[in-house]
Nucleic acid binder design. Structure first.
Lengths: 338, 338
DNA sequence: AACGTTTCCGGTAACGTTTCCGGGATTTTC
DNA sequence: GAAAATCCCGGAAACGTTACCGGAAACGTT
């Protein structure tokens, strides 16, 4: 129905030129106070909204950030909320695309956003991705890009991530303190950075406590409840079975839990369990699951702040690496001491 | 670095006019086959991508859909994935905004998307919203709008939703079949449409089975685990306590479960429990939770399809109402007969 | 009275694209 | 062989905005 008013409409109704209207609206100098007031009054009456498209075309900025995430599970959607929060504050709009952990989809998404003319990218890379040309293309276009959570050493870009190693350390140390002796790890796919870092934390802790590592206690499996279930069954079938398990995600911990219950073992007495991410589900299962908590919302905010900083500065921030610290959250599944 | 090539670059290099280049690229008539081929060859060489901004400005279409949702919990993020799926297919990009169940935020989001010049909206309305002027403004601008899941009778717009009444019916009937006699309902806030419809399904079923309703068995409380917990404690403290509870969300069912366990009652023997939504958590809790399953992904797809249809037709679709059917998913918490 | 400053405003180009229109050159038609 | 049709192409306007430039009018200064 009522087409939105343009600067030209205002100019005509006031019998002045569009340039003057434009200047008035951006309160630039070189315009009489009265005409400016008239312009402002009329623009409010007509409910004038500047056309973002024309503006973007003119000044080659869209004030839009392309966000690419592998999925929108609890952790990532919380991070996205964090990104959204500070982006909005800074006058940016975000476009979120899910790659569904697919390399092809990730390429498609970057291409799409790239020619939708976003001003830059905030990216968490898919687990499937081993080639990074599509991301490098972004940088080659001169657009800023921040990598968060799932970072990749192949990309030289500012990054924000969790100290995953410390997470592994916290979990392992806690289990040792509770008197568990044979601690197994359910890790993710061997090419997933976050998983490996958490594993490293575990290994370092063993070394610190002078416990020699037992490779049979380290299982790699898909980031998935079912695989975790079967992997746990294998662990429990060992002649010298582990008396504690650290899984690098809550999802996997749930799978492990099912297997443990099925075998008639009790937590935390027979076997201790610690997950990672501290998703809400952790306090819904029985027994309630101990987990490594990460400041997801804060992490998202930090990523967006870093992005905006790299928009505004001409310095090279590609070496900036922000690292947030995890926190141990002890619940029933691993507390056997008072 | 390398600024993207424009139509003008191609024209210059080929010593022809921009019009000819444009025509060649859109294989319009009135262009010689050879020049066309030359243009196409060069455009590929330069990796030419048409500037979406200029295009949108010109033809007053952005090929972008604004999606507004109250949050991104499991159900809604699944629906959004569905929307994304068919939107992408049809050449649209989606911009998702969360209102966080806040009326003010919803207004802000619509305004922002509106002047980002989206082509239309797909909306699920926040629970807080009682005034709909911001949505009517969309329609007044002549933009198509589809409402999904959380619909509102105040809005005359095409809609896609679940048959919530049937959900309530399925749950209640199932509990009756399992021999439960006194069935309580944990409903959401009294102004939430979906909640009331599910409640209606319950009431209709009672009537069908000639059971007189007992108002003390119907509790309204916030859409929230904690409130559900306390409400359940109240229910269980009644002199004639219910022997089954139907909650209108899984989140609330979890709260109820905690209360039930705390009171030393067992499911399904002492008390039956059925949730709604069939979130993954339903099969993670002990006992596993029976729930009403809804085709969220399909619902999202249907909403997007309806949107695209209303983009392409000039007919008035505002009376179109697509209703998807729920499915009962029986698990441990309510199965006491073989 | 002449000149420099300030104040205020309009015209125009530009961002990258499509579309309409007109016209020269070539071909067809009788 | 002239009129008519066809084939190609370029120019220009338009979408809505900003930015640069130039200039008219008013003012102040000697």
């Amino acid at each position: 129905m009522s087409k939105p008013a343009t600067i030209k409409d205002i100019a005509q109704r006031l019998n002045i030129s569009v340039s003057t209207v434009s200047r008035s609206l951006r309160n630039a100098p070189d315009v009489n106070i009265e005409t400016r007031q008239a312009v402002i009054a009329l623009s409010e009456e007509l409910n004038y909204q500047p056309n973002k498209l024309a503006l973007s075309l003119r000044q080659k900025q869209t004030h839009t950030i392309g966000v690419i995430v592998p999925n929108l599970d609890y952790v990532l959607s919380t991070m996205v909320r964090g990104i959204d929060e500070v982006a909005l504050e800074a006058g940016y709009t975000v476009m979120v695309c899910q790659s569904n952990e697919s390399y092809g989809r990730e390429i498609l998404n970057t291409a799409r956003l790239l020619d939708s003319l976003v001003d830059g990218f905030i990216v968490s890379v898919s687990s499937e991705t081993k080639i990074f040309d599509h991301f490098k293309k972004i940088q080659h276009r001169g657009l800023p890009m921040v990598v968060f959570d799932r970072i990749a050493p192949q990309l030289t870009a500012p990054s924000v991530r969790l100290d995953n190693e410390e997470g592994g350390l916290l979990a392992t140390e806690h289990l040792l303190e509770q008197g568990y002796k044979r601690i197994a790890v359910l890790a993710g796919p061997a090419n997933l950075g976050v998983s490996n870092s958490r594993l490293d934390g575990y290994l370092k802790t063993l070394k610190k406590y002078k416990i020699k590592k037992d490779d049979s206690l380290i299982m790699h499996c898909d980031f998935n409840q079912d695989y975790a279930y079967y992997a746990t069954l294998e662990l429990l079938a060992m002649k010298k079975r582990p008396d504690a398990i650290f899984t690098i995600s809550d999802r996997m911990a749930i799978g492990a839990m099912l297997a443990i219950k099925e075998k008639g073992l009790r937590m935390p007495s027979d076997i201790g369990l610690v997950g990672f991410n501290n998703e809400p589900v952790a306090s819904l299962v029985t027994p309630m699951l101990s987990s490594i908590d990460m400041p997801s919302f804060e992490l998202g905010k930090a990523a967006a702040r870093l992005f905006i900083e790299s928009m505004n500065t001409s310095e090279d921030l590609s070496q900036v690496e922000e690292i947030l610290r995890p926190k141990l959250c002890i619940r029933e599944s691993s507390r056997r001491l008072a």
